[in-house]
Each structure stands twice: as structure tokens, then as C-alpha cells.
Design a protein around this nucleic acid. Structure first.
Lengths: 239, 239
DNA sequence: CCGAACTTTGACGGAATATTGAGGTGGCGC
DNA sequence: GCGCCACCTCAATATTCCGTCAAAGTTCGG
């Protein structure tokens, strides 16, 4: 069987550059998914589960570094950053935020393709099941690849923010995530103090996902610390 | 508790550059293994099993591209190529031969370090930043990375202050910690005299963790000095 | 331009936790 | 035996934190 074409998510606001990438990549056998904004990019990431992300840092609606960090909170997909800024501190910031590579514009197409191949080559061996993109907890099932959530087999519709919060919790199931960690991953580093958001959205998630929202079993509160998605199904209630 | 220093194999023939890399990397906590030729490099690779390889392409005894290919034939160790040649075809050749990254000399130290971190981050799957470090004492298990505590396999819920106190004791298991040390670590430097807090919280921890809180085995009192978490399981009571 | 879905913000009751105080226990020197 | 000291236990109070609801603001699509 032939290998399916790798899916490349291109997040780039300039139409000319986006068109250039689209045609070049398609000509070389890739399947291209496009997004013009950070918001759109995050949605595509969740929906299409690309094999690699090409991310322009100069997006209109968000800081590219934040986007990198938000992607890393739930996905291990390789990220190649494209940027007009060639300062060393920009590169360091992007790489430390979780990017796998950094290319300064203008760059040669052949180099981009080679770095793309390098990123895909590394990722492939792990594709045999290294990263479980489906997390189950009790009667809850979260499919991080398809952006779908099921409760007892029934699909549940979640708003974008609701889903991202749940995705972060699911990506670290069983582990306590602090308020700050969650806020940074979902809302970005400018919202580290807004624990109120968490209360509201955790409440909404419980309302949609828990059997009895008043006595939550899936999303547990760690008072004064944060929240945690229980990864083991608790035994049936004895009383 | 500290991660062992990652081992970096530097394959570089110019003594000045080698020395620069050696001192810079050591200053940043890496363990450096050196080789001046390709032959030597391959021998070190087999013998020392480094976490990452920095490979100069302009070696005297072999073509760097061939070296890259030879490494890849047997190892998955990340390779970061350093080269004076910045032509696109050189980059493509190195990356397609199996290199993970390509830096053109002269390069900034910070960028090199960031790309090094990126390569290491990818290589170690479970190490996203959270240290596993688990401390066991008898039937007690403290997972400092996940902020979870188990007693005989059952998870125990601890309030923030309770957990912080236990975490300090666990981080120095077997060692006596004075009242002042504990108070400073948990409550801060303004509470050094409040030994009463310790009594209350040690009592609560014993109540939650000890099999018989009246005769504590895990958290031992050192009268007039402080407390200590026993790190060895005491033999089962014989009488 | 309007309506639907979503996000942000504010108010308030109640739960969980931290702090404080009073009384009890046990070892030790005298 | 007595008193002292350090420690332990229990419980009341104070404080912080959390869950809920609903209104106001925003975004998006028709």
C-alpha cells in the first residue's frame, strides 16, 4: 500500500506567501491545509490532525510564541516556524516555546522541503502508537486527533474554549495541572491570574460531561492548586 | 532529583572551535565528549552513546555527509550539523542524509543552545519538563512530579499546606529536618517560631498516612530538633 | 442588520482550608 | 510523687477558595 500524503498545516496570513507554500508543497506530494489566523490554525490543528505545522510568527490575531506554546500543550506535532525576524532571541524564544525548527524569511524552497522531510522522518517511527491521541476516563472519551468528545458513546458538542481546556486536561490525564498551567495553555500568558475563567469553564465542562455535575468524578478539583482529569474509572458508588 | 547531564558528542577538527564548544556547553550543564576526526567520532559514538551529536562537516579524514549517513545507519541519536558552507544544496544534502538540524558558521551560542534543547526535548519522550522523581517510604508513595500521594496504592487527597510539608520531607527522605527548616520551606521566613503549625500539620499527615497515627512509623519525631520521613520500610511488627 | 453561540464579567452562598486556642499525654529530673 | 517541658489532639473561628447563576459584551453567519 502506498503511504498517504503527509498533511501539512500552513498557518500564514499573507496571501502571497500562503499561495506560494500551497502550490510548492502540493507539487511535492503533500496535502495542504491552510489557516490565515491563529484561531483558525488551532481549530484546524484539532480538526485535521496534521503531520507537521508550518507556522508564521507574524499573525494578526495572536503572538506566534503563544500559539506555539498552546499547540504544545496538547499536541506533539512538529512545528516549523517561519519568520521575517532573524534575531537570535526570536529564534531562542520560539524554539524554547516548543518549535522544532526556525526558518528566517526569505528562505529557499529546497531548504524548507529538506527540513520538512527531516521533521517528518523523526515523527514517523513514533506513529506506530507512541502517542495515544485518544484519551478515555470513565465513560468519557476524548479524541485529540479528530477534535471529538464522547460521553457514554454519545458525541458531545463543546465550544472552542471548552474543548481546548478539556484537551489540555486530557493530554495530561491523571496529573494535577495548576491554575497557571491551564490558563497559560488555554488563554495564553496574559491571563495567568484569571482563575475565574477556569471556574466558569470547568463548571460548563462538568455540566456537559459529568453524570452528576454536583459531585464530579471526571474533573477533580485540587483546592488551592488546580484541576485534574481522573484517568482511572472510579469504582461504582457504594453509598 | 537533578537530571543527569546530557552527553554531547562534539566532532570538530579546528581546536579553537572545539574549545569554544567545550567551554560553552560545560558552562551550561552538558557533559562534553570530543572527537577531532570522523573515525574518532564514530568510535566515541559507539562507546559513549551520547544524547546528541554536534558534527562539523569539514572534517579532514572523511566527508561529513557520509559520516551523517553512517551514524544514521545504526543510531537514532539527533545530529546537529555545523558548517561554514551556507549553500542551500549543502543544507539539503546534510538534512537528507539524516541530520536533524543545520547551523551555518558563524552562529550565535544562544541559538545553538536552543536548538540543542529542542533536539533533546524531542528525543526524550517522557520528559516534557516534569521530573518523574518518586519517593517511596514503606507503603507510602509520593510522586513529586505529578503532585500525587498514594498509601498502599490508594490515592490520598492532601490540602496544599499538607502536601507542601510532605513534599519537603520526602525530598529529604531519611534526613532530619529542623523545625526552622520546615517552617521556612513551607510557610516562609516569617514563621520560623510557629512550631505549633508543624505539630498540627504533622498530626494531620499522620492521620491521613499512617496505619496507626498514635505510633507513627513514617513521620518520626526528633524531640527538640524536628521531623524526619523514614525512607526504609520498617519490618513488620513481630510482637 | 439581526439573531445565535460564545466569551467575559460580576455577585453571592457555601465548601474547603488555615489559623488559633484550650486541654491532654508522656518522659524526665528532682 | 511532683512539676516542667515538648509534644499531641480536638475543636472553634477566620479566611480563602470554589461553584453557580445570570447579565453584559463580543463574534460570526445569514
Amino acid at each position: 500500500m502506498t503511504t498517504p500524503a503527509p498533511v501539512v498545516l500552513v498557518v500564514e496570513d499573507e496571501p502571497a506567501m500562503r499561495r506560494f507554500l500551497r502550490t510548492s508543497l502540493r507539487a511535492h506530494g503533500y496535502h495542504v491545509v491552510e489557516a490565515a489566523t491563529a484561531r483558525e490554525g488551532l481549530a484546524q490543528l484539532a480538526g485535521r490532525n496534521p503531520d507537521v505545522v508550518l507556522l508564521d510568527l507574524g499573525l494578526p490575531d495572536a503572538d506566534g510564541i503563544d500559539v506555539t506554546r498552546q499547540v504544545r500543550a496538547t499536541h506533539r506535532t512538529p512545528i516549523i516556524v517561519l519568520s521575517a525576524r532573524g534575531q537570535e532571541r526570536d529564534k531562542v524564544a520560539a524554539l524554547d516555546a516548543g518549535a522544532d525548527d526556525y526558518l528566517t524569511k526569505p528562505f529557499g524552497l529546497q531548504e524548507l522541503l529538506a527540513r520538512l522531510r527531516a521533521a517528518l522522518r523523526r515523527a514517523v517511527p513514533g506513529r506506530g502508537g507512541a502517542e495515544p491521541s485518544v484519551v478515555t476516563a470513565g465513560e468519557l472519551r476524548v479524541d485529540l486527533g479528530r477534535r471529538q468528545v464522547f460521553r457514554a458513546g454519545e458525541e458531545v458538542h463543546l465550544a472552542p474554549t471548552e474543548y481546548r481546556l478539556l484537551a489540555v486536561l486530557a493530554a495530561h490525564a491523571g496529573q494535577v495541572l495548576t491554575h497557571r498551567q491551564l490558563l497559560e495553555a488555554v488563554w495564553g500568558p496574559n491571563f495567568l491570574e484569571q482563575t475565574h475563567y477556569l471556574r466558569v469553564y470547568v463548571g460548563q465542562l462538568r455540566h456537559k460531561l459529568e453524570r452528576d455535575p454536583a459531585r464530579p468524578r471526571l474533573i477533580a478539583t485540587e483546592p488551592g492548586v488546580g484541576y485534574r482529569l481522573r484517568d482511572e474509572a472510579p469504582p461504582a458508588a457504594g453509598g
